Computed example of a mutant assay.
Amino acid sequence: MTSTSPGAPGRTSPADRYGDDVLATDWRAPRRGRATEQAADLGLVVEEVTTDWCGEVVAVDRDLHTVTLEDRRRKRRTFPLGPGFLLEGRPVVLHAPVHRTVPAAPTRTASGSLAVPDAPARVARASRIFVEGRHDAELVEKVWGDDLRVEGVVVEYLGGVDDLADHLRDFRPGPGRRVGVLVDHLVKGSKESRIAQAVARGPMGPHVLVVGHPFVDVWQAVKPQRLGFQRWPDVPRHLDWKKGTCQLLGWPHRDQADVARAWKHVLGGVRGYQDLEPELLGRVEELIDFVTAG
């Protein structure tokens, strides 16, 4: 083979008989380029690649890790944040925007009481409040936590109402050592109501108050309007209530991690007592009054 001079355009040189080395470039790079991080700011227009849905970002839910896009016909669809989007034809990985704000010092607690800035927690009283269910306990802490610390009331998690008798036996309620108990689904004829009646009739009855809300799950004690819908769905009895609720609301519901994120979303929507149903508010206030009396 005859080679040409090294400088001739379009020709190979003796030192490079086979042309450019294709491996010298990033031959594995996607045709549209590599994805870059992009904040899902409101008003950003992106395309979801698996559905070709193109729309403007109108909502981002940090707890559910989702983004809602509205197309030109004003129809909306929700997608998981992350990879799988195009911005002006280039792949991007969407993430929730970062907002750095300094909140003002509150003048009232989440329960509506007058806030006492920098008030030290009171030495714990002998009395206690038992709360059935981890989510119930987290909700009580969020709304009444500041008040309870000022009053020196400790809240203890109760795994189930069936464990109540054992807890009371260990705690030994008596004068100056009261116990308030908050249970789920305390309605007439239920197992919970029978247990509450048995406690009231027993020797510890004068020192124990068992109250409850009528909801299947404490999620329902959060006003649905605060979360963007009008009413909690009716979940068929054969479905797990939490997973069924997530499914009917269009939230991720595949596993327990999805349920945990959904609860974080629900709890995150609660700013204070105004976001809760009165059936829960009254019962918790009743318990606080009972254990702090005397």
Rank of each mutant, 00 (worst) to 15 (best):
V183H: 01
W144M: 07
E138D: 13
Q38K: 15
K242Y: 05
T292A: 11
L227R: 05
R100M: 10
R128C: 01
A24R: 15
V210N: 04
A293T: 11
S111N: 12
E192N: 12
A124Y: 07
V291H: 01
A196P: 06
V218I: 15
K142G: 09
A196K: 00
R194P: 02
V57F: 04
R28V: 09
D16W: 09
G176W: 05
G55T: 11
V46K: 01
R226F: 05
K75A: 13
V199A: 08
R201T: 06
L227C: 10
P214N: 00
V218N: 06
L148E: 03
L64Q: 02
G250N: 09
V67L: 14
E47S: 09
V222P: 01
V60Y: 00
V218K: 06
G55A: 11
P91L: 05
G145F: 04
G159Q: 10
P233Y: 01
T50Y: 05
I288R: 14
E192P: 01
D275K: 02
R125S: 02
V49P: 06
M1R: 07
S111D: 15
H65V: 14
L280C: 07
V218F: 06
V150G: 07
V187F: 03
H185I: 03
G89R: 11
A15P: 00
R125G: 02
V153G: 01
R90M: 10
K243I: 06
V58H: 02
E141H: 10
T25G: 13
R108D: 08
H213G: 03
K264V: 00
R31T: 13
D61T: 03
S13G: 11
D147V: 12
T50E: 14
E138A: 02
L248F: 05
T101V: 12
W263N: 06
H213L: 06
F290L: 11
D52A: 14
V181L: 08
A198G: 13
A124N: 10
T51W: 01
E132Q: 12
P117F: 01
F79S: 06
E56A: 08
M204G: 05
A262Y: 00
V123P: 12
Q220G: 08
V60R: 00
A110N: 14
G189W: 12
R149G: 06
L287A: 08
L81G: 11
R11F: 11
R128S: 04
T68V: 12
V153M: 04
H207N: 14
A262P: 01
A257E: 13
P214D: 02
P278M: 14
R100C: 07
A8N: 09
W251H: 01
D170W: 05
H207C: 12
L42P: 06
V211E: 15
H135T: 15
K243Q: 14
E151T: 06
A196R: 02
E47F: 07
S193D: 01
L44C: 04
A293C: 08
V153L: 09
A39P: 04
R72M: 12
L227Y: 02
T25D: 08
L81W: 03
L267E: 01
Q38A: 13
R172E: 15
E48L: 07
R74E: 10
L227I: 00
G176E: 08
D63G: 11
P278T: 07
V291A: 02
V140R: 00
V270S: 03
P30S: 10
P91M: 03
V266Y: 04
G282Q: 13
K191C: 06
T25N: 08
G7F: 10
L287P: 00
V284E: 07
G82W: 08
L86W: 09
A293R: 15
